[in-house]
Protein backbone atom coordinates (compact mmCIF):
# COMPACT_ATOMS: atom_id res chain seq x y z
CA UNK A 1 0.00 0.00 0.00
CA UNK A 2 1.27 3.46 -0.86
CA UNK A 3 2.89 5.53 1.86
CA UNK A 4 1.02 8.73 2.64
CA UNK A 5 3.25 11.80 2.63
CA UNK A 6 2.85 15.51 3.23
CA UNK A 7 4.32 18.51 1.43
CA UNK A 8 7.60 18.52 3.34
CA UNK A 9 8.12 14.81 2.81
CA UNK A 10 7.37 15.26 -0.87
CA UNK A 11 10.08 17.87 -1.19
CA UNK A 12 12.57 15.65 0.64
CA UNK A 13 11.77 12.69 -1.60
CA UNK A 14 12.03 14.76 -4.76
CA UNK A 15 15.38 16.11 -3.60
CA UNK A 16 16.49 12.47 -3.33
CA UNK A 17 15.31 11.69 -6.85
CA UNK A 18 11.66 10.70 -6.51
CA UNK A 19 9.38 11.15 -9.54
CA UNK A 20 6.09 13.06 -9.03
CA UNK A 21 3.24 11.68 -11.15
CA UNK A 22 0.06 13.71 -11.71
CA UNK A 23 -2.93 11.47 -12.40
CA UNK A 24 -5.43 14.23 -13.21
CA UNK A 25 -6.70 14.72 -16.79
CA UNK A 26 -4.01 15.96 -19.15
CA UNK A 27 -5.54 19.43 -19.63
CA UNK A 28 -5.28 20.08 -15.93
CA UNK A 29 -1.66 18.98 -15.97
CA UNK A 30 -1.01 21.27 -18.92
CA UNK A 31 -2.23 24.28 -16.95
CA UNK A 32 -0.41 23.63 -13.68
CA UNK A 33 1.60 20.79 -12.23
CA UNK A 34 4.23 20.28 -9.58
CA UNK A 35 7.80 20.96 -10.70
CA UNK A 36 9.24 17.96 -12.50
CA UNK A 37 5.98 16.00 -12.50
CA UNK A 38 4.94 13.86 -15.43
CA UNK A 39 1.35 13.29 -16.53
CA UNK A 40 -0.28 9.88 -16.45
CA UNK A 41 -4.04 10.37 -16.13
CA UNK A 42 -5.73 7.74 -13.98
CA UNK A 43 -7.39 5.94 -16.88
CA UNK A 44 -4.07 5.69 -18.66
CA UNK A 45 -2.18 4.02 -15.84
CA UNK A 46 -1.27 0.75 -17.54
CA UNK A 47 1.70 -1.33 -18.65
CA UNK A 48 2.34 0.93 -21.60
CA UNK A 49 2.41 4.21 -19.66
CA UNK A 50 4.39 2.53 -16.89
CA UNK A 51 7.28 2.34 -19.35
CA UNK A 52 7.62 6.11 -18.88
CA UNK A 53 8.60 5.50 -15.26
CA UNK A 54 11.93 4.45 -13.84
CA UNK A 55 11.28 1.44 -11.57
CA UNK A 56 14.36 2.27 -9.50
CA UNK A 57 12.97 5.66 -8.44
CA UNK A 58 10.38 6.36 -5.78
CA UNK A 59 7.07 7.48 -7.27
CA UNK A 60 4.86 10.19 -5.76
CA UNK A 61 1.31 10.06 -7.02
CA UNK A 62 -1.02 13.03 -6.58
CA UNK A 63 -4.27 14.51 -7.85
CA UNK A 64 -6.08 17.74 -6.95
CA UNK A 65 -6.92 17.09 -3.30
CA UNK A 66 -7.93 14.25 -1.01
CA UNK A 67 -10.75 12.99 -3.24
Amino acid sequence: MATLIDRDQLQELVARGAQPVEVLPADEYKEDHLPGAISIPLRQVNRESAKLLDPTRDLIVYCWDMA
Partner: peptide
Protein backbone atom coordinates in the same frame (compact mmCIF):
# COMPACT_ATOMS: atom_id res chain seq x y z
CA UNK B 1 -8.15 9.24 -7.75
CA UNK B 2 -4.56 9.14 -6.45
CA UNK B 3 -5.14 6.08 -4.22
CA UNK B 4 -6.45 4.13 -7.23
CA UNK B 5 -3.51 5.20 -9.38
CA UNK B 6 -1.08 4.27 -6.61
CA UNK B 7 -2.70 0.84 -6.21
CA UNK B 8 -2.53 0.28 -9.96
CA UNK B 9 1.15 1.22 -10.10
CA UNK B 10 1.90 -1.19 -7.27
CA UNK B 11 0.12 -3.94 -9.17
CA UNK B 12 2.30 -3.08 -12.14
CA UNK B 13 5.33 -3.84 -10.01
CA UNK B 14 6.49 -0.51 -8.62
CA UNK B 15 7.85 -1.02 -5.12
CA UNK B 16 8.21 2.51 -3.76
CA UNK B 17 4.95 4.33 -4.32
CA UNK B 18 3.95 7.33 -2.18
CA UNK B 19 0.75 9.27 -2.22
CA UNK B 20 0.76 13.03 -1.68
CA UNK B 21 -2.77 12.99 -0.37
CA UNK B 22 -3.30 16.76 0.12
CA UNK B 23 -2.53 17.08 -3.60
CA UNK B 24 -2.03 19.96 -5.98
CA UNK B 25 -4.51 22.11 -4.07
CA UNK B 26 -2.29 21.98 -0.98
CA UNK B 27 0.83 22.66 -3.02
Amino acid sequence: MAPRAAARLELLGFQQVHEYKPGKLDW
